[in-house]
């Protein structure tokens, strides 16, 4: 084989195989089918309750938050780190899949599963707020969008760390740090910075700053996932 053909084929081989990625995602969905079922039930039930008047709305919101928090732990620990701790990773990597196929599939499958309750909450919240102007005055849709954006960024960060570190300690530690330190930073420190406070207030009021914040969150989330892919392509030992 000459150098040119070697180089061309090597380049071809490094590209992610869409077919293999889809097969790996299908596997992850199958293995997580029970979790997906209960996530869907929890999300729908939470939304129904949240749409009810009085105390039931609070029960519904609490249920949805619990689904989010549970998934924040469950998905990285079971789907990503589970492959390592259950020693199924050697089996998967013995198949004709490139490590990049595996990483991309793992990120996408977890992201898709997480987007089930996330989308349910986003859509449900939109419907509820549209029907309840009184509630919308207390809890503006823009604020809900920013909070959902933060949740999305946190999940992508945790997922990325789980994929890169393959360590339960690092992943759980990061979740705790993000929830405690990050949560307090966002709720207590950022509002004291005049620039951030102004940006946030204008965004919640429906100004163009909302697009900047949401765009920034999306870029940050995607960057986290990209870091995981780049890190994995540079890994020298896959087992």
């Amino acid at each position: 084989m000459n150098e040119t053909s070697t180089g061309t084929m090597a380049a071809a081989s490094n590209i992610v195989s869409r077919d293999q990625v889809l097969r790996l995602i299908a596997k992850d969905f199958h293995l997580s089918r029970k979790a997906i079922f209960w996530i869907s039930i929890g999300s729908v039930l939470g939304l129904i309750l949240a749409a009810m008047p009085g105390q039931m709305a609070m029960v519904g919101i609490t249920l949805i938050l619990n689904v989010f928090i549970a998934l924040l732990f469950y998905l990285p620990l079971s789907s990503v780190l589970g492959e390592v701790t259950e020693q199924t990773l050697p089996f998967v990597l013995s198949l004709p899949v490139a490590p990049t196929d595996y990483t991309v599939a793992k990120l996408l499958s977890n992201l898709l599963i997480y987007l089930i309750p996330w989308t349910a909450v986003a859509v449900g919240a939109g419907i509820v707020l549209r029907r309840s102007p009184a509630l919308a005055q207390q809890l503006p849709g823009e604020l809900v969008a920013i909070v959902l954006g933060i949740v999305f960024v946190v999940f992508c960060t945790v997922l990325s760390i789980a994929v890169c570190s393959r360590s339960t300690g690092w992943t759980v530690g990061l979740i705790v740090v993000l929830m405690v330190v990050g949560g307090n930073f966002i709720s207590m420190i950022l509002p004291r910075v005049p620039l951030m406070r102004g940006l946030f207030e204008r965004a919640v009021a429906g100004g163009p700053e909302l697009a900047i914040i949401l765009g920034g969150q999306l870029v940050l989330a995607l960057s986290m996932l990209a870091i995981a892919v780049v890190r994995e392509t540079r890994r020298s030992s896959f087992l």
Binding site: S13, Q20, T88, F91, S94, L95, V97, A98, D101
Partner: peptide, 16 residues
């Protein structure tokens, strides 16, 4: 790697 693994059967002691 992907092409080669399509023609290799691998079993290891730590594989589950």
């Amino acid at each position: 790697g992907r092409e080669v693994k399509g023609e290799i059967g691998f079993v290891s002691e730590d594989m589950r």
